[in-house]
Design a protein around this nucleic acid. Structure first.
Length: 362
DNA sequence: AATGCTATCAACCGCCGATGA
DNA sequence: TTCATCGGCGGTTGATAGCAT
């Protein structure tokens, strides 16, 4: 460990040590943590200094418990990323990876003890959707079991690999893809709650609002049976999944294509073009809802930033595009439930579905 | 009031990748 | 190319507070 035999202190930090570290960062900036000891005589290793600074001393840290919005976001990001706490934390300004990790582990323990799945049922459907999508596109490379394990046991949980889109490193969406996890670098976005209200106002089924998620989770706490199979009554998202898988629409409904569209400048026109004038009214409404959310503003005002803007710190926007996605899902649920489920399903002409007209991504 | 359990928080540890000599 | 160092990340543990019995 380089230096001199002097014993390094461990354990809780004292205010005096904090002051020294803060002063050091004020003078020298962040980084070069091992120099703290040399410069200030602080008997702490560089790692400890970095940790203390990152988790407690740096400015703009948010204290206190997570808001419902944040909790929802964590759940969804975890469903997509797995235990990538640093990446999750990057989407929650003012929150640290350690905080999120602690929150998750506590929650995990609680739900394990209660015999509950680690995700609310709605989220599990999304996870399975993603897995299915992955299997379709990655099977030759890394075969996975055809039937994804239920999420009841966290040991069985494998983080979702990023969706196999063409490399779009400059596209902030590309690193955030996932069913219901679409990201937009929108300027002051609506909060999930306001999105919920917006959708409600225009008569759309709401996206997965915090309140809804919380309610669902509470309900799931009361009964743990039948959560995984989607067989407990009209589990609409389960139905959607079956429908999509049964018809191959899941494969066609390329999230990436949605995103590519979103990046198009002529956003409004494109939505109409894609969903078509003949398209389902609800889907058009969904696209309008999305526009309402501020996509139009984004495309007009931010121009290319949508393609290269850093995502860091932009949390609530995660749920922005997601509102659209969930709208589509929910609307599709309606479609699904209104369709006669017969053997004719095999003949279902996918090309007639709105999203089949989307431009392809190569 | 005492005890046990659980949740939360803070910090450490080991591993790994990046970087530079 | 190899090696040492550094910083970042995820897993884990210990201390403490809060709550129920």
């Amino acid at each position: 460990m380089g230096g001199g035999g002097e014993e390094l202190k461990k354990g809780p930090w004292t205010p005096a040590e904090d002051a020294i570290l803060v002063e050091h960062v004020r003078r020298h900036g962040e980084g070069n943590w091992n120099a703290v000891r040399r410069h200030s005589g602080l008997a702490r290793c560089g790692k400890s200094c970095r940790l203390r600074w990152a988790n407690h001393l740096r400015p703009n840290l948010k204290k206190g418990s997570f808001s419902p919005d944040e909790e929802l976001l964590i759940l969804r990001l975890h469903a997509q990323l797995g235990n990538k706490w640093a990446r999750i934390a990057a989407q929650l300004p003012g929150r640290t990876d350690n905080e999120i990790k602690n929150y998750w582990n506590t929650r995990l323990k609680r739900r394990q003890r209660a015999g509950l799945p680690i995700y609310p049922p709605e989220l599990q459907d999304a996870v399975r959707f993603d897995r299915h999508h992955q299997q379709q596109h990655q099977a030759p490379i890394s075969p996975r079991p055809l039937t994804p394990p239920p999420l009841l046991n966290p040991v069985d949980f494998h983080p979702l690999p990023p969706i196999s889109l063409p490399p779009l490193p400059q596209n902030p969406f590309a690193c955030q893809l996932g069913f219901g996890f679409l990201v937009s670098p929108l300027a002051p976005p609506p909060t999930p709650t306001s999105l919920f209200q917006q959708q409600h106002q225009i008569g759309l089924p709401p996206p997965l609002s915090p309140a809804f998620a919380v309610e669902t989770e509470l309900r799931s706490c009361q009964s743990s049976s039948g959560l995984l199979g989607g067989d407990n009554g009209p589990s609409s998202s389960g139905l959607l999944e079956s429908l999509l898988q049964g018809t191959g629409i899941a494969e066609d409904m390329r999230i990436g294509e949605l995103l590519a569209l979103q990046a198009a400048d002529e956003q409004g026109a494109r939505w109409t073009q894609v969903f078509g004038d003949d398209g389902d009214e609800g889907i058009k409404e969904a696209s309008q809802a999305y526009s309402l959310g501020s996509a139009t503003k984004l495309d007009r005002d931010m121009g290319t930033e949508i393609k290269c803007g850093p995502m860091k710190g932009d949390t609530s926007t995660l749920l922005d595009v997601q509102a659209l996605t969930m709208s589509l899902v929910l609307k599709s649920n309606e479609l699904a439930s209104s369709l006669p489920i017969t053997s004719a399903d095999e003949d279902c002409n996918i090309s007639s579905w709105p999203w089949s007209n989307m431009p392809g991504i190569h």
